[in-house]
Structure formats: C-alpha cells, structure tokens
Amino acid sequence: MDIREIPLTTIDGDQTSLAAYADRVVMIVNVASKCGLTPQYEKLEALQREYGDRGFTVLGFPCNQFAGQEPGSSDDIKEFCSMTYGVTFPLMEKVKVNGRHRHPLYAELTAVADVAGRAGRVKWNFEKFVVSPDGRVQRFRPATQPDDPAVIAAVETGLAQLRTPDLETT
C-alpha cells in the first residue's frame, strides 16, 4: 500500500493524508508531552523553521502508548506544543503506533528497517521516519536527535529530489 493514500486526521479533526504533502519531504514523529525526550520538540521545530520554505514538514503524531506520557486531550496537546515549544508544524490526532490497533500508517512504517537493519515495533516516543518525495522512508530511533547528521542528510537528500521551477529569463 502507498502510505500517501492512508487517511489521517489532524489534531483539529480534519481529514487529510500524506498525499497532501506529496511535494514535500516529511518527517513523521510520534510525540509525547511528558517524556524525557520531549525537549526534542525544540529541535523538530528548528528543522521546520530551517527547511520549511525549501519543502520540508514535520508531522507530529501524539501517542500515549509509552508509560502514559501523552495523557492530554487534543486541546491540551496543542496548547502545550504551542506555548512550551512554539510548534508550528502540523499535529495529527492521538494514535497508537504499536499493537493490533495501531494506526495503518504505523503498520506500514514499522516494516521499515533502521540503519542497523531492524524493523518492527516503535521503541519509544520520538521515533522518526523521513519520507522523501519518491516515497523512500528512512527510520531513526528515539535517541537519535532531530539534528543528528544522519537525519539532516536524509532531509537534504529528500529536498534534492524536489524539482526547482524553471526560472524565466528576461
């Protein structure tokens, strides 16, 4: 299945899919407000600000499956992200990323192996999946910081795939 066709719901309840981001490099991250890794929001937002104008988007997927570290409502999550980290990137509705009731997007993403060749369950909050415009997915485990050189390389490689419009000469 093409992951771009999987229905998604924004944190505000609007329907969308990754097809809406087909002309962008997308970083999909399962996020949580009460996790030791929560400060990664700062670096995720920095990436959004640095690369957003070039065709990059972070998509945050709140998840409460890891030690109950995302217990809030959609409004609580939006307020926390905005007030604490100034998050401007899109957030989706709270999802499950593991188990029999996991979101269909994560059913596809967890089949992707990380750099060590391991696929399978999401290990914890802030696992990252970089999706290039050609549909290639690269996986980075939670401890890998958003500004890690390997993550930046994946983003840059994806951005290089985007077409630059032909410039008209006068």
Rank of each mutant, 00 (worst) to 15 (best):
R4M: 08
I6W: 09
T10C: 09
L18E: 00
L18P: 05
L18K: 01
L18G: 00
A20N: 14
V26A: 03
I28D: 02
I28N: 04
V29H: 02
V31R: 01
V31W: 01
A32K: 03
A32Y: 05
A32I: 00
A32S: 06
S33Q: 03
C35V: 00
G36Q: 06
P39A: 09
P39Q: 06
Y41F: 15
Y41R: 11
E42V: 13
K43L: 14
E45W: 14
R49V: 07
G52T: 04
G52W: 09
R54G: 09
G55Q: 05
F56V: 00
T57L: 04
L59V: 04
G60E: 15
F61R: 07
F61P: 09
P62I: 11
C63I: 08
Q65E: 10
Q65A: 01
A67L: 10
A67I: 02
Q69I: 11
E70S: 07
G72Y: 10
S73E: 00
S74Y: 02
D76Q: 12
K78P: 01
E79F: 13
F80M: 14
C81N: 08
C81I: 08
M83W: 07
M83P: 01
Y85H: 13
Y85E: 04
G86T: 03
T88L: 09
F89R: 05
L91S: 01
L91N: 00
M92A: 03
E93D: 14
K94L: 01
V95G: 08
K96Y: 10
K96L: 11
N98G: 14
H101L: 11
H101A: 12
H103W: 05
P104N: 01
L105K: 11
Y106D: 00
A107N: 12
A107T: 13
T110W: 10
A111P: 05
V112I: 15
V112T: 15
G117E: 06
G117S: 06
G117W: 07
G117D: 04
V122R: 02
K123R: 12
F129P: 15
V131F: 10
D134M: 03
R136M: 03
R136L: 07
V137E: 14
V137H: 12
Q145C: 03
P146V: 07
P146I: 05
D148H: 15
P149S: 12
V151C: 03
A153P: 08
G158A: 13
L159Y: 12
Q161D: 12
Q161E: 15
L162S: 07
D166T: 13
D166K: 14
L167P: 09
E168T: 13
T170K: 05
